[in-house]
């Protein structure tokens, strides 16, 4: 009796449609990300590479790949990645905070805000590889930048940007900065504008100077989104690939000081050393998983739709970085 009714109930239950609608997402995720991830982890414990035309392995070797990894230049590349990321991120966050504060300061009455926003966000949409190629052409030994500097009398001989460590790293950082400061500015601006205006009015009545208002009111109020920007930018930094790859033609020159972790991974994938590629991926995955958890907990305690919405956008944008 009861069972018959249960069956009848199911006919107007909509639950199955929930499963049907989310199925494509999870199938695609399973096939193109989860199974590959499991395989990646699996092969990281195997000797599995190609030598000439012969394939060696897969032979289980335990943690040998990881040992080999730490004996190779892995740590150096980790250092490179961190340096390149920080060199771009510090100016990015400072300039973005400054611009966000200026754009939202009613007393400054900056005109053409929309124009500036459009301009500073534009580099974010540029193909990173094309942008790097452009920089390579512009900053090459006899490129327009050197030509301009010489004709202006600043330099006597061309400065070989791409043969110097700081020149190459500086260019990578500059490109990352240019590509991301507009995005961060817009996010921070939205966060500042989300603060109750009465708070600023109260601060003004209490005699806060613009500087004090910024440090005592604005910064603490937008802290969650700052944390978010920081973490997603770290993930973006870990993914850094296109710019240094194209700029240095995959060599990370000079002397592999511009080789990032993903470039390292890419080299192993190209040479079909799946064991080593797996080991790098697993370490990257562990770091990213920790950062993902931080993002999750940063997103979820703040129930406000406004904030989470913005963060969602930011997440997507940052995920593009690489």
């Amino acid at each position: 009796m009861n069972k018959r009714k249960k069956a009848a109930e199911k006919e107007i239950s909509y639950a199955k449609w929930g499963y049907i609608f989310i199925a494509p997402f999870f199938i695609a995720f399973l096939v193109f990300q989860l199974i590959p991830l499991v395989q990646t982890v699996y092969y990281s414990f195997f000797e599995y590479y190609r030598s000439g035309l012969t394939v060696i392995g897969p032979n289980p070797v335990g943690f040998d790949n990881y040992k080999a990894l730490f004996e190779s230049d892995f740590l150096k590349y980790t250092g490179n990645t961190i340096i390149l990321w920080i060199a771009g991120f510090i100016p990015q966050i400072i300039i973005s905070l400054l611009l966000a504060a200026w754009f939202t300061d009613v007393r400054l009455r900056i005109k053409g805000k929309q124009f500036f926003k459009v301009v500073i966000y534009m580099p974010n949409l540029i193909m990173a590889s094309a942008f790097a190629m452009l920089f390579f052409a512009l900053f090459s030994d006899n490129g327009p930048v050197n030509a301009a500097l010489i004709s202006a009398g600043i330099l006597k001989t061309p400065f070989r940007f791409l043969s110097s460590v700081s020149g190459t790293r500086g260019l990578v950082a500059l490109m990352n900065f240019l590509m991301w400061f507009g995005n961060t500015t817009i996010l921070l601006m939205a966060a500042v504008m989300g603060i109750n205006p009465a708070l600023f009015e109260a601060a003004e009545l209490d005699g806060c100077s613009p500087r004090q208002t910024f440090f005592r009111i604005t910064l603490p109020m937008i802290r969650p989104i700052l944390v978010y920007v920081l973490i997603t930018s770290m993930i973006g930094g870990l993914q850094m690939f296109d710019v240094p790859q194209i700029l240095t033609n995959g060599k990370g020159s000079p002397d592999r000081t511009a080789t990032t972790l993903i470039m390292f991974l890419n080299n192993h994938l190209y040479s079909k050393n799946y064991g080593m590629a797996g080991a790098i991926s697993v370490i990257l995955f562990i770091i990213c998983a920790i950062l993902c958890l931080l993002v999750y907990f940063n997103l979820n305690p703040t129930e406000s739709d406004r904030k989470t919405g913005k963060k969602g956008r930011a997440a997507r944008k940052e995920a593009v970085n690489g």
Partner: peptide
């Protein structure tokens, strides 16, 4: 669980599974 799962992988880069991806 489905929602939490998607939120957890929100900013996970695809590069980490690139090796298995090429394989599959």
């Amino acid at each position: 669980p489905a929602f939490i799962f998607i939120m957890l992988i929100l900013v996970m880069p695809t590069q980490v599974s690139a090796m298995g991806f090429i394989n599959i």
